[in-house]
Nucleic acid binder design. Structure first.
Lengths: 110, 110
DNA sequence: ATCTTTTCTCTAGTTAATCTAGAGGAAAGA
DNA sequence: TCTTTCCTCTAGATTAACTAGAGAAAAGAT
């Protein structure tokens, strides 16, 4: 019941997933590792959230997938950002900046 | 269906409400006005979210209410931050900083 | 006087994202 | 052979926030 930083994740997961795919094609597990690694203990994306998010994003045409092999020779589904997804990422990035700016303003000024 | 900054609000509403009550006792409508005023167009708290949030926070012992009169002579329920609520606010503030810091890191580094 | 707007509280029902708590499978390492 | 690591996926529950109102009392407008 303890509140963790993850409880704030709502609405932001899509953004960071899209962002993670901007630089290179990755598979689900790789996205998770990468995000957790960068954020360290501050927040962690779990698989029960990530995979539904990937399906959602693909359904909306923001990413597309194809099966491939990792360096280790294991099967993995690789996700690639589409043009539409790239635009969406920019939109969500702007929203995030607007939102977090407003929150910080309120926290400062009220 | 258009995504607005409000969709990111989840998990943050409680924090900004508690914060708004830190400096002074306010009634629901006053909290809404104050927040909307500071955030301008960046985000707006609507009543269908705010009043349930106030009930929730009171139930959890973070705020307590009492009926009073505004300067205009209207009935209004005034909310006051409790000690427990004040501690909770500090906790949530720390979580917000941790969370938004992590998100910004990911947006920058991935 | 009546009508509309403003101030103020509150709720029912819906939506949808996330979490918990797994299952399952294939390759690598012990 | 056993365990660990890598990798994908899902059912069901939770719960916050939204939509779309109702209602009531005071003030302002005509």
């Amino acid at each position: 019941m303890a509140k963790r930083a993850n409880d704030l994740l709502q609405g932001t997961l899509d953004l960071i997933v899209l962002r993670a795919l901007q630089s290179e094609t990755r598979h689900g597990w790789g996205i998770q590792q990468r995000i957790n690694q960068i954020a360290e203990d501050a927040l962690s994306v779990n698989q029960g959230s990530l995979y539904p998010a990937l399906l959602r994003l693909e359904k909306r045409g923001y990413i597309k997938s194809s099966w491939g092999r990792t360096e280790n020779g294991r099967r993995a589904k690789y996700y690639e950002l589409t043009k539409k997804g790239s635009e969406q990422m920019e939109t969500e990035l702007a929203l995030w900046r607007q939102f977090s700016g407003a929150i910080n303003l309120i926290l400062k000024e009220v």
